[in-house]
Simulated assay, not measured.
Amino acid sequence: MLPAIAREAVAPAAEYEGFIGWVLSLMTTIGEVGVGLAMLIETFFPPIPSEAVLPGAGFLAWDGRMNVWWAIIAATLGSLVGAWVWYGLGAALGRTRTRWIFEKVPLLETADFDKAEAFFTRWGGAAVFFGRCVPLVRSFISIPAGVERMGLGVFTLYTTLGSLLWNAIWIGLGFAFGPAIDPVLEQWSGVLSTIVLVLIAVAIAWFILVRVRKRLKARDEESPAED
């Protein structure tokens, strides 16, 4: 791990390509604020994995282009703001209207909401804290918390602690392995970006396929009953 003076002397890295290049460019252009913005976007668009964003912030901190501690704080604030929005929506809509939305939105099911609500009811604050460290769950665990009107102060505390832990781990890994990451990104950023985007596309396609097959199966089972 390089000392602060040595990191400041590191020359700016070469242009990176693809999705990874876009993320690094965003964070390089507006610094730690870009880290928070990236995490806010990830909260509303879960297919953008924070596991691919946060190590980039750690790498840029190692490269001397941002402060690692401010990057962690910015990422946590971005996650918290996004969580507040989902919490507010859950609190404003309430259980009945939220279930209605899940019923009407294509490929969503009321069972999805019921499971999330049951999970939150059983585990409470622990669900919010540990949910911040689980992909997809960290975006939507805030909805049942709002529906159940969990105290905003308590929700903020658990969300902040969970997000802080998650962000510190991944940014810390990017910072610690900066010397190893640099040559890999310079050579393979385009290929790695393609792999990330392909994995995201496959995950979305798989989700759609499973849901469509389930709907078709349910429709086929209802048809003989109606006959």
Rank of each mutant, 00 (worst) to 15 (best):
V68I: 12
V68C: 00
W70R: 03
W70S: 06
W70A: 00
W70D: 04
A71Y: 08
I72N: 01
I72P: 00
I73Q: 06
I73T: 11
A74W: 06
A74I: 07
A75F: 10
T76H: 00
T76K: 03
T76Y: 10
T76L: 04
T76F: 08
L77F: 10
G78V: 00
S79Y: 05
S79C: 12
S79R: 05
L80Y: 02
L80F: 09
L80C: 09
V81E: 03
V81Y: 06
G82K: 05
G82R: 02
A83D: 02
A83I: 08
A83L: 04
W84F: 15
W84A: 11
V85W: 07
V85I: 15
V85N: 09
V85H: 07
V85K: 07
W86I: 05
Y87H: 11
Y87E: 08
G88T: 08
G88A: 12
L89T: 05
L89D: 02
G90A: 00
G90S: 02
A91F: 05
A91T: 06
A92I: 01
G94N: 07
G94Q: 06
R95A: 15
R95D: 13
R95P: 09
R95S: 13
T96Y: 04
R97K: 14
R97E: 13
R97H: 11
T98I: 10
R99D: 13
R99V: 14
W100R: 14
W100H: 14
W100D: 14
I101D: 04
I101H: 10
I101L: 15
F102T: 05
F102L: 06
E103P: 10
E103L: 10
K104C: 08
K104S: 08
K104N: 13
P106W: 07
P106K: 00
L107P: 05
L107W: 06
L108K: 01
L108M: 11
L108Y: 04
E109K: 12
T110R: 15
T110E: 15
D112N: 15
D112G: 07
D112L: 07
F113C: 05
D114K: 12
D114N: 13
D114E: 15
K115F: 12
K115S: 13
A116K: 12
A116Y: 11
A116F: 12
